Simulated assay, not measured.
Amino acid sequence: MRAWLERVEREKGLDVLEAQSRRGVIVSFVGLALILLLGGIQLMAQSDNNAFLPLLIRLLPIVLFLPAVWTRRARGHVWLAFVSLLYIMQGVMLASLAGHAVVGVLEAVTATGLFFSSMAYARFRSRNQRQHRQA
């Protein structure tokens, strides 16, 4: 795996890979946030008192990483990848419930995309910064 990544880095260049993985992070981040928003609204509609707590619990962990994504910090993207694992588990759990299969699968797939793209961005960003410091 490491040899394959290093070959891809030589062929495409770190700048291109960093930009591509950044686009992947943004697309999957926004997609996951929208899915979580729709799921939270659905939970609010099912609740008797229309409290915002289900929406807050679903969205808060990912929204806390918005500054790290906005400022392009590699370490923040690594932590975002770890938190996206929670959303993968939640999506798989939702997919096993009757009536929530589609939302659960979408959440798991989007969170998996966020995991891979944020890990890739952290790798390519840190290697690119290290390369520019050495030059």
Results as ranks from 00 to 15, higher is better:
Q129D: 11
F82P: 06
A111M: 09
L34E: 09
T71K: 00
A51H: 12
I62T: 04
T112Q: 10
L43W: 06
F124M: 05
I57G: 01
E107H: 06
M119V: 15
L56W: 05
I88D: 01
F116E: 12
A120E: 15
A95Y: 12
F52P: 01
N50V: 10
S28G: 05
Y87W: 10
T112E: 12
I57A: 14
V27A: 11
V63K: 00
R133S: 13
L59W: 00
I57F: 08
R133E: 14
H132S: 09
L106Q: 08
G113T: 14
G91Q: 10
A19I: 05
A108F: 06
D48H: 15
G113M: 13
R130T: 03
I41Q: 12
L37Y: 11
A51F: 00
E107K: 07
V63C: 04
G99C: 15
A51R: 15
P67H: 02
N128L: 10
L55Y: 03
G40Y: 00
A98M: 13
T110K: 04
S126R: 10
G104R: 12
G39M: 11
S28D: 02
K12R: 14
L34Q: 04
K12G: 09
F124G: 03
V103A: 15
L59N: 00
L85R: 07
F115H: 12
P61T: 01
T71G: 04
A45S: 12
V30Q: 02
M119D: 04
Q42T: 05
L94S: 11
W79V: 01
A45Q: 14
L37G: 07
V27E: 05
R127G: 03
L55M: 12
A74V: 06
L36H: 02
H100K: 14
T112A: 15
L86T: 11
S28F: 08
G24V: 09
L66Y: 02
R123L: 13
H132V: 11
F116R: 10
V63T: 01
R133A: 15
L14T: 05
